[in-house]
C-alpha cells in the first residue's frame, strides 16, 4: 500500500449558508489523482482547502503530515497550484513572471532565471516567451500557468482544470506534460470534467458531487468494478429481443443496451455464471452470439455511481 500523502476526515466547508463540501473523508496516495465531478461539485474548493486558501468549518486535513491552515507557509513551499481561471500578469513576459514567482516560492535569485527557462522549455514555449502574456492565446496561458506551478519543483501539485479552453491537440500536449511530471514521484491532483482525459492520465480517482464523495479508489479497481460486468450480443427475432431487453433491465443492472436489426447489444452487471446467461437467452427464444467480461469506462462508472447516488 502506497503511503497516504493527502488525508481528510469528515471535512466540511461552507460559503456562508452554502455547504460546498460535506463529511468528506479521503486518503490519497502518491501519483496522479483525478478529481472529477460536475460544476459546483466542490473540486476547486477542495483544492483551496488543501493549500490553506480556505479554512474548513469542520473535520481534519493533513497534507504531507501538515495542517494547511496551521503550517501554511511551510506547506506552501511544497505545493504548486494552477488555478482554474486566468490569473497571470498580462504586462509581464513568462520569463519574468515565472522567475519572479519562483523567488517568492523560495528559490535563490541566481537559480530562478535558468530554472524559468528550463520549465518554459518543458511546457513547450518557444521564442514567444519574451512577449507579454497579454498577447497570448488561452492554450499558451495554460502552459505558463503550469510553468509557474512547477518552477520551484514542489512535490505536490494541484492543477485545477488544466486543459480548460485548449484545443484537442493542446489538451493532448497538456496531459502528456502532466503524465511526465507525475512520473517523477510527485503527487499531482488534477481536476477535470473530462472523464476520458482523466481515464488516460490518473492512477487514482476521486469523484465528487454536490460536496459529497461519490467514489474514490485506484483507477484500475474502478474500471474493473468490484463486481463482474459483461458485454454481450444476443441475436434473434426483433419482437423477441425487446421483451428480453425489458426483462434484463427490470431484473438486473444494465449500463447500456441497444437493439439494431436482430441484434441486442448489452452491457450489464452479471455476477452469475455464463451458462445461466445463455440459458436465459434460450428461454426467450434467442441466441448468444458474443459474451465477454467487460471493462467499463470511467464514464460508465461515473454515470452508474451518479445514478445510484441520486
Amino acid at each position: 500500500m502506497e503511503p497516504v500523502v493527502i488525508k481528510t476526515k469528515g471535512l466540511r466547508v461552507t460559503y456562508d449558508q452554502l455547504v460546498a463540501l460535506d463529511s468528506l473523508s479521503l486518503s490519497l496516495p502518491r501519483g496522479i489523482i483525478g478529481l472529477l465531478g460536475p460544476n459546483g461539485a466542490g473540486k476547486s474548493t477542495l483544492i483551496k482547502v488543501l493549500i490553506g486558501l480556505k479554512k474548513p468549518v469542520g473535520g481534519s486535513v493533513s497534507v504531507k503530515g501538515m495542517v494547511p491552515w496551521e503550517q501554511t507557509l511551510y506547506l506552501r513551499d511544497h505545493v504548486g497550484y494552477m488555478p482554474e481561471y486566468d490569473c497571470l500578469i498580462d504586462e509581464m513576459n513568462p520569463v519574468t513572471l515565472v522567475s519572479h514567482f519562483g523567488r517568492i516560492s523560495g528559490m535563490e535569485k541566481g537559480d530562478t532565471v535558468w530554472r524559468a527557462h528550463e520549465v518554459l522549455d518543458f511546457v513547450g514555449l518557444g521564442e514567444e516567451r519574451y512577449r507579454n502574456i497579454g498577447t497570448y492565446s488561452t492554450g499558451m496561458k495554460q502552459k505558463v500557468k503550469l510553468a509557474q506551478a512547477i518552477v520551484h519543483d514542489p512535490p505536490i501539485l494541484f492543477l485545477d482544470e488544466p486543459t480548460e479552453g485548449m484545443d484537442p491537440l493542446g489538451k493532448e500536449e497538456m496531459l502528456k506534460l502532466i503524465k511526465r511530471v507525475g512520473k517523477t514521484g510527485k503527487t499531482v491532483v488534477v481536476s477535470s470534467h473530462q472523464l476520458h482525459e482523466i481515464e488516460r492520465t490518473a492512477e487514482h480517482i476521486v469523484i465528487l458531487d454536490r460536496g459529497k464523495l461519490l467514489m474514490e479508489g485506484p483507477l484500475k479497481k474502478i474500471l474493473h468494478g468490484e463486481e463482474k460486468n459483461i458485454r454481450s450480443i444476443v441475436i434473434g427475432e426483433p419482437d423477441r429481443l425487446e421483451p428480453f431487453r425489458k426483462y434484463l433491465k427490470d431484473t438486473y443492472q444494465v449500463f447500456s443496451s441497444k437493439i439494431i436489426g436482430n441484434e441486442l447489444n448489452v452491457s450489464m452487471k452479471w455476477e452469475d455464471t455464463g451458462n445461466h446467461f445463455f440459458s436465459m437467452a434460450v428461454d426467450h427464444g434467442l441466441q448468444v452470439k458474443e459474451y465477454r467480461p467487460h471493462i467499463r469506462s470511467l464514464e460508465d462508472a461515473f454515470f452508474l455511481t451518479f445514478r445510484e447516488g441520486k
Binding site: I104, M107, E108, R115, E118, F122, D153, R180, T184
Partner: peptide, 25 residues
C-alpha cells in the same frame, strides 16, 4: 521537438523574509 523530460530543481529554499525581498525587487 523531442519531448523534454521533467527535471527537478535541487536548490535549497531561502528563508521566508527573502520572499519579501523578492516582492520588493
Amino acid at each position: 521537438m523531442m519531448p523534454l523530460e521533467y527535471r527537478a530543481w535541487l536548490g535549497v529554499r531561502t528563508r521566508y523574509l527573502t520572499r519579501v525581498r523578492a516582492m520588493m525587487d
